[in-house]
Simulated assay, not measured.
Amino acid sequence: MIPYWTKYYDSDSNGNIRNVNTTQELKSITLSIINRVAFDFNIEIFDKNPEHRDEVHGWISDLLVGLLYKFVFPEWLFEYVPFGIFKRFKDAKNRFRETAMKMILKKTKEYENANQVKEDEDLLSLLLKSSNNGKLTEEERLTNDELVSAIFIIFFAGFETSSNSLNFMLRLLATRPEIQEKLIEEIDNEIPSMDSIKSKESLINLNILQHSI
């Protein structure tokens, strides 16, 4: 994230990055983490330019807004009206399914090659392992449509909630610089490097951080 921000945002004379849109960037962070942890999939949101990030945010926003509209407008509007949120929702839905199927096909190939799942494997692999259990009948196994639905639920259950919570926490810290300094000092003392974070037990001594969260 830091190289990305350094490249695309302004910095002052001391090298401090300025004018970062935290709402947008925390959405990017959340999207990246959920896809990596839950699906072992890199959406490359920090590997490309801001236009790519904004385009990803755009179609995800269209998908969420369209879902809300479906509670108000009849279903046929979303299938036949070729403009506005109706078209954008249809395009976003197709985009989501296309991305989800890429995840499923990638994981299916990995599973077929290894036929095993590591202890720290992602959720999608665990779903595929469960679905490919030899004891299940064909009717009991998850279809691709059911896997896409599971990806959708996992993805959107964590996306808005996580990014909004992080945004709120950062805004609180910005208004309490004394707490922010204590938090930075604690992290510097307890976490000598990113490589030292091996599990949640590595964070057990971060009392200020845990209370902040």
Rank of each mutant, 00 (worst) to 15 (best):
P3T: 01
Y4F: 14
W5Q: 09
T6I: 03
Y8I: 00
Y9P: 04
D12F: 10
S13E: 12
G15R: 14
N16C: 10
R18D: 07
N21H: 08
T22A: 07
E25G: 07
K27M: 05
I29Y: 04
T30W: 04
S32V: 10
I33C: 04
N35R: 04
R36C: 04
V37K: 05
A38F: 12
A38K: 01
F41R: 05
N42W: 00
K48V: 03
N49H: 08
N49Y: 00
H52F: 15
E55M: 13
E55Y: 04
V56P: 12
L63I: 02
L63Q: 13
L64A: 08
G66M: 08
L68N: 06
Y69L: 09
Y69M: 06
K70G: 12
F71V: 10
V72K: 09
P74I: 01
P74Q: 12
W76G: 00
W76N: 02
L77C: 11
P82D: 07
F83A: 11
G84F: 02
I85C: 06
F86T: 02
K90F: 03
K90G: 00
A92P: 13
N94P: 03
R97E: 15
E98G: 06
A100C: 07
K102I: 07
M103F: 11
I104T: 09
L105F: 13
E110N: 09
E110G: 08
E110D: 15
E112C: 06
A114P: 07
N115G: 08
N115L: 14
N115D: 12
Q116V: 11
V117C: 13
V117R: 08
V117F: 15
K118F: 10
E119G: 15
D120I: 12
E121S: 15
E121K: 14
S125F: 03
L126I: 08
L126E: 15
L126T: 10
L127Y: 03
K129R: 14
S130Y: 08
K135W: 11
T137D: 10
E138Q: 13
E138K: 13
E139N: 10
E140R: 03
T143A: 07
T143E: 06
T143D: 01
N144F: 11
D145M: 05
E146D: 11
E146Y: 07
L147T: 04
V148C: 03
V148S: 02
A150M: 10
A150P: 00
I151G: 04
F152E: 14
I153T: 08
I154D: 06
F155G: 00
A157H: 01
F159T: 01
F159G: 02
T161G: 00
S162D: 00
S163C: 05
S163L: 02
N164T: 09
N164D: 09
S165L: 14
L166C: 06
N167T: 02
M169H: 07
R171Y: 06
R171S: 14
L172M: 01
T175S: 14
T175C: 12
R176D: 10
R176S: 06
P177I: 03
I179R: 01
E185V: 04
I187A: 00
D188W: 02
E190Y: 09
P192S: 13
S193M: 09
S193H: 04
M194H: 07
M194E: 11
M194V: 08
D195W: 07
D195Y: 07
D195V: 10
I197M: 11
K198H: 11
S199R: 03
E201K: 04
E201L: 11
E201D: 08
L206V: 05
N207F: 11
I208E: 03
I208W: 02
H211R: 03
